[in-house]
Write a protein that binds this DNA or RNA. Structure first.
Lengths: 254, 254
DNA sequence: GCTACTCTGTGGTCAGACCACAGGAGGTGT
DNA sequence: ACACCTCCTGTGGTCTGACCACAGAGTAGC
């Protein structure tokens, strides 16, 4: 086989350690210098591999010393999924429409599933109450994302939850830009809240088909009303969004 | 604002260039040394950013000189998706069951959608004919993956297609290991082919519900019959699978 | 003309040197 | 004893500079 690049060797070693249980969630990776020495590669190659793992949401990097320092194995697939999809959208590999359609697809299924199995929706209800008191669009939308994610999480499928987090994260900028376009934001927020409550009601009533349809229309209508189109948002969304490990907005040129 | 790490600055710049159209699919990124000088960072930081882009499937790296050398913007989300999910599975962040369940969810929807809209299934049929002549499980399964990917692609949703490619890729090793466990592989392959043909027939007949159910059972039964369980596969699957840049056979480009 | 060699630009890698940071060990004053 | 403070140590973050490998382009020689 082709000579493996050094950083791939590092990645292979870590993947192998994950598979055979040598590394578990919560464990620390060996320090970069140690890993480099063990695998007989340069530290820069180790760093490239670790960087990949960080972006993919497999490890959390901490500086300094102590228990929080170093690379710790975690599982935050949403971050990596979001970075991947956001960049694909930026590069026109993904159309925003397809992202939205996929959201509709997954969330419909999730809603139907939740409706079919009795669930405790207390958390969801309290989240909605918090949202009633959220005034700035950014704050409301952040809680909205949390609400939708909570439902996905309750479905018990971690993969679906992660994909949904990625889908939402990838178009976060477009969603916020869309909100700015509404003349009467409070009215929109109020309508969204009504739809949220209707959705929960349908789930509680065990109405799978209804819940499914409601959430689909809930998502579709927002994007429709905010006149989302990739072309019109290229410029306004050209600010940096490359902080792949977290989600606080950055500023950049152009 | 928090001091941005150097490699994030590089990533931000590239994302920005993608968003405003300065960089398009097919374009070359500036050489690493140039990019480093322009952004006033070290070359190693540029390399970390480029490495991330490579793994996420946004650029293809070529060595040497000429048109194929350097980092070229491409769109291969499946590769990144696959790497992400495979590592999450390895780290126990994703359960194999959830991956399979998500496959069922997506492929059911895709099948239903295809059945609702008339499609030209010629390619799918010829692929099945090639599969009839494939004897080794590995070869058959590679074509099988291609078959399922083809259907997803025909749905027209690039995001769904990419996610499905990732899902399948993430458990590729488990699928192959499962095939080895069958006493009478030819019989299994034959049964799978029958199911494939039944699925296409349902799609051609416009039977959305039927196609949906068939593909769901098709997927579920394979995993059920091959007795897939994460625990039993830890050791046998511990070989290296970190060649994240290798393109999948079922990767198509736009 | 054709061939073979060399040049040049590109990524791939390593080694070493610093810096920034945060916990921990140990000393110091009360 | 106790609380506080200081320095030490280990960790990631970054840069610099040096080579190597590779593949196309250019050029000299036949």
């Amino acid at each position: 086989m082709a000579t493996e690049r050094a950083w791939e060797l590092v990645l292979a070693r870590i993947e192998s350690d994950l598979l055979n249980g040598t590394l578990k969630i919560g464990d620390h990776l060996p320090p970069e210098r140690t890993l480099a020495a063990e695998l007989d590669v340069g530290r820069s190659s180790v760093r490239e591999a670790v960087r990949v793992l960080e972006v993919l949401g497999l490890v959390r990097i901490g500086t300094g010393s102590g228990p929080t320092a170093g690379a710790v194995v975690v599982s935050r697939p949403g971050g990596g999924m979001s970075a991947l999809m956001r960049l694909q959208v930026a590069g026109r590999g993904f159309a925003v429409d397809d992202v939205v359609r996929t959201r509709v697809l997954l969330e419909s299924s999730v809603a139907a599933e939740l409706a079919s199995a009795v669930q405790d929706l207390t958390d969801a209800h309290s989240l909605l109450e918090v949202m009633d008191r959220a005034s700035p669009p950014e704050e409301f939308l952040a809680l909205d994302a949390q609400f939708h994610y909570l439902l996905a999480e309750m479905s018990g499928n971690t993969v679906v939850a992660a994909v949904m987090a990625g889908l939402r994260g990838s178009i976060e900028g477009y969603v916020v830009d869309g909100a700015r376009g509404f003349a009467d934001w409070p009215a929109v927020a109020s309508r969204l809240q009504g739809e949220h409550r209707g959705l929960l009601a349908a789930i509680e009533a065990g109405d799978a088909a209804g819940a499914s349809a409601l959430v689909a229309e809930h998502i579709r209508s927002y994007y429709r009303d905010s006149n989302l189109s990739v072309g019109s948002l290229d410029q306004s969304s050209a600010r940096s969004r490359a902080d792949v490990s977290r989600s606080h907005p950055n500023q950049h040129q152009r």
